[in-house]
Nucleic acid binder design. Structure first.
Ligand SMILES: [Mn+2]
Ligand SMILES: [Mn+2]
Ligand SMILES: [Zn+2]
Ligand SMILES: [Zn+2]
Lengths: 139, 139
DNA sequence: TACTTAAATAAGAATTATTCTCCGTTAAGA
DNA sequence: TCTTAACGGAGAATAATTCTTATTTAAGTA
């Protein structure tokens, strides 16, 4: 992804544009399989050897708050991040740490319809994420 | 839950029966809103003041491995646990740390049917967990 | 019931991921 | 160019979890 676009994404959210933010946002996009902070640090070190670890965590938090990336939960004790904002679900591998995207507009529609009819009392739904747990044949 | 039943559950899995394991398993059942290790430690301290923290983590891991409890993922940096084994989904509150169970056999059936028709190539599904994010009116 | 032993626990150190603090630097508007 | 609030670097601090080692115990066996 080119710098123009990265700058634009930050600017759209009214965020100050800094090299660190651009590098970290780009890393989340490039490392497309839900990278950890660790993965991101390793990646950006290649081009930005002196970015502080604390900065990476801070920037990731800020990017999440501003809706430029999302957190992906795992049953391990570290966080993972996702640069894909459009609604999608996740295939979690039971054998390894692989989390694959599962895009399915038909499923989204099905869920949306289902919960429109069936409204949950006392709760206002913002979004769904279906965790699909299982194993990949390749694993 | 009485001791007989707790013992039985451990025995069914071929696990050695210890007071610590019984207390921790009972705590997960009693603290029914997806307790953290911290919550569990606090709870069992009332009756078992000298259980080591390391033991709690170890036992929780063992209970998960043996399929007596499940982990519940959050976007915070600690794990939560669930004593309810039957398929169900979760309402995550965006305002606080509340995670409420959402049981819905109709939805389970819908998902099962949907993924039977639509099979995901190269992936064998074991279970679904739908994360329903939003806000409770009371929050 | 007493004996045996592998497995489990207590205590506390160590590790890991993440957050915080403080001070120097910089982006962006005037 | 100047100003300044926001940002980032360095490293200490914290919080959750894991590891290590010695001691204890559950549960099978004689
Ligand atoms: Mn994704
Ligand atoms: Mn639950
Ligand atoms: Zn795998
Ligand atoms: Zn709430």
């Amino acid at each position: 992804m080119d710098n123009k676009l990265l700058k634009q994404k930050l600017a759209e959210k009214g965020m100050k544009i800094t090299p660190q933010r651009m590098a970290i946002l780009e890393a989340v996009y490039e490392l497309n399989n839900h990278p950890t902070a660790e993965n991101i640090i390793e990646f950006i070190r290649k081009t930005h050897p002196n970015v502080a670890i604390g900065t990476v965590y801070k920037v990731l938090e800020t990017l999440v708050e501003n809706g430029l990336i999302k957190k992906v939960t795992t049953d391990r004790n570290f966080m993972r991040y996702d640069g894909i904002l459009e609604s999608h679900h996740h295939l979690y591998c039971s054998n390894c740490d692989l989390i694959e995207d599962y895009h399915d507009a038909e499923l989204d529609e099905l869920l949306k319809k289902y919960f429109e009819s069936k409204n949950i009392s006392g709760f206002k739904i913002e979004e769904f994420v279906l965790q699909i747990k299982g194993t990949f044949n390749k694993c």
